[in-house]
């Protein structure tokens, strides 16, 4: 058995299988959470019937319904691109999970340049979105796709810059290394070692910028112009139906999961919680990380159901005039602090 597990390919296949099973499952849970939370924020009950109590099976039922629907391809569409786009989006989202450390051992691959890889893999989704918008042969889709592209260019930069602060502080780009850096005691009060996540070690601005940019990357309100139901019908999703639409849908929530997991790892200490003995992290780690992810996802949902969306040009000015200078200042301050302290 152990011999089999030592085989690189077997192990890899196993890990990939786990991710492919767990991530959509978690995404379903988040979909359900969004349905319920949004309903109660609006004095509604929300889903109630599917699955008996609380309608817990609603996302499943939706998924099954979508899969039964005809998979329509518009006549003028660029067929291969149109059909391939949702897979690119889903792949890009799932690929991020390769470097997310759920516990000291539970990580698919602890790359040396983990952070860099995560951001790069995350941007692949935008190519998928652009493909979808372009190939649909629909003006709304095209505008949605182009808006998504413009958004990516504007927000990739603050996202990366916000992370640089953490990388400077941790001195490594490996995700596991960053968590370990947050386990290191910052200072001691008497005998007690004080361990703080990077958020509390002065990365507040970095965290805020990261979350704002992450929202823009995920096309979530207040940055959901690429979809913008009231203007662009459904943006790049307009022409999609059936299983392909489901893929986009799953990818959105899986994306929320991955972005929150990265944010939790970089800024909130990942699988580590101060006070938990390090030996127990192998078991408790995934739970701790999931708790942090859930908190972040709740905030994302909360924002979605409170705010209107910005306009495309306002989004650009927010990125270029505020977030990027702020992120640069953050890097400078962090670097100086690192050298001085």
């Amino acid at each position: 058995m152990t011999a089999l597990l030592d085989n690189f390919w077997v192990l890899l296949a196993l890990k990939v299988l786990i991710i492919a099973a767990v991530v959509p499952g978690v995404a379903l849970v988040f979909i359900f959470a969004e349905l319920k939370i949004s309903a109660h924020m609006q004095s509604r009950i929300g889903p109630y019937f599917a699955g008996g109590r609380w309608g817990w099976a609603q996302p499943l039922a939706d998924g099954i319904k979508f899969m039964q629907k005809e998979d329509l391809v518009p006549e003028d569409a660029d067929r291969p691109v149109f059909k391939f786009a949702p897979m690119v989006v889903l792949m890009g989202t799932l690929a991020v999970f390769v470097i997310v450390p759920f516990s000291p051992k539970l990580i698919v691959r602890d790359l040396d340049i983990g952070v860099f890889y995560a951001l790069a893999a995350g941007s692949v989704t935008t190519i998928g979105v652009l493909m979808a918008g372009w190939s649909s042969a629909n003006k709304y889709s095209l505008m949605g796709g182009l808006r998504a592209a413009a958004q990516l260019i504007a927000y990739e930069l603050p996202l990366v810059l916000a992370v640089v602060g953490v990388v400077i502080q941790a001195g490594t780009m490996s995700m596991n290394g960053i968590v370990v850096a947050q386990i290191e005691p910052v200072f001691h009060i008497g005998e007690v070692a004080i361990r703080l996540p990077f958020l509390l070690q002065g990365q507040v601005i970095g965290f805020a910028i990261f979350m704002i940019a992450a929202l823009a990357e995920l096309n979530r309100t207040p940055f959901d112009m690429p979809i913008a139901e009231s203007e662009l019908v459904m943006g790049y999703l307009t022409e999609y139906s059936g299983i392909r639409f489901t893929m986009f849908f799953l990818a959105e929530y899986a994306g929320m999961f991955s972005m929150s997991a990265i944010a939790a790892t970089l800024f909130l200490g990942g699988y580590y919680l101060p006070g938990v003995p390090e030996g127990a992290l192998d078991v408790l780690g995934p739970l701790i990380l999931m708790a942090k992810v859930t908190l972040l996802v709740f905030i994302i949902i909360w924002l979605r159901w409170t705010f209107p969306r910005l306009r495309e040009d306002q989004l650009q000015s927010l990125a270029w005039r505020w977030l990027i200078p702020l992120a640069l200042a953050n890097i400078a301050v962090t670097a100086v602090a690192k050298v001085v302290l």
Partner: peptide, 12 residues
Amino acid sequence: PLELGAPTPLMH
């Protein structure tokens, strides 16, 4: 507000 992308005021 719904047209500006905020669905919650609608229900309230």
